[in-house]
């Protein structure tokens, strides 16, 4: 189980500290599939990075399976079963797709094993395994390699940050199948930052993050219609303390 207790995060701004996340309290049971959605700049990616340890909260605690992991490094959290797929993954001159997948798996992967991960993101191992993860790959290709590395971690908590960004329609359809299969397998907790209805519809619950706060949480069938209903005229759900 993942638990966030009173988590806040401030970043240095031009006129002093700026609150990016404010007093987030959150409990996610094992094997659940949650989508984090909300307006741009609302704190979704920051929240995900705080769970992975990429950012340290300025206040509050993060517990993973009852253990306080607030002070643990990224690699320590990775070893405890937390994985994160970047929204904009970096490229590497000289590291091949096979290298990244093997690092992710913690051991050299056979062609078949690597192929299985790549197939799940709509890439053919024959074409991609020996390619460098550099600028010769398109944004969508790098993104799919990124998602494959998260799959290769076989982690108990998988966080994906806008996995659909930059991905073509056909690959996106394959990806939604993969997320559905992952959830059906019930091996991991899945946390996806997304704005795509096809991904949102797969989830058990929606977390609406806005203005650095958890604005709403609930089953998809309950929350999603409200968001859709109110996005045209301005969403009341995005108001926190009567402030938007």
């Amino acid at each position: 189980m993942l638990e966030l207790r009173n988590v806040s995060y401030q970043a240095a701004g031009e006129n002093g500290p700026v609150g990016i996340l404010r007093d987030i309290n959150l409990c996610i049971e094992d094997k659940r599939f949650l989508v984090i959605t909300g307006p741009n700049g609302g704190g979704k990616t920051t929240l995900a990075k705080i769970i992975m340890g990429i950012y340290q909260p300025t206040q509050g605690q993060i517990l993973w399976n009852g253990t306080d992991i607030t002070g643990l490094s990224i690699s320590e959290r990775a070893k405890l079963g937390i994985a994160y797929g970047f929204q904009q993954p970096p490229r590497f001159k000289g590291l091949k797709v096979r290298d990244l997948l093997s690092i992710a798996a913690g051991q050299p992967l056979s062609h078949d094993a690597a192929c299985a991960y790549l197939t799940r993101v709509g890439l053919c191992a024959r074409d991609y395994l020996e390619r460098d993860v550099d600028t010769s790959l398109s944004g969508g290709e790098v993104k799919r390699v990124e998602i494959a590395t998260v799959l290769a971690r076989q982690s108990a908590l998988m966080i994906f940050d806008e996995p659909e960004a930059g991905i073509d329609l056909w690959s996106f359809a394959r990806l939604t199948e993969t997320f559905r299969d992952l959830h059906d397998e019930k091996k991991s907790t899945i946390l996806i930052i997304s704005h795509q209805e096809r991904i949102i519809r797969l989830a058990d619950e929606i977390l609406l993050v806005s203005g650095g706060q958890l604005a709403a949480r609930g089953p998809v069938e309950e929350i999603y219609p409200k968001i859709m209903q109110q996005t045209v005229t301005g969403c009341n759900l995005l108001e926190v303390d009567k402030k938007c």
Partner: peptide, 13 residues
């Protein structure tokens, strides 16, 4: 970012 990415895959700095 490259270091961070590899750390999320379980490697130390």
């Amino acid at each position: 970012e490259q270091i961070l990415k590899l750390m999320t895959l379980g490697l130390s700095h």
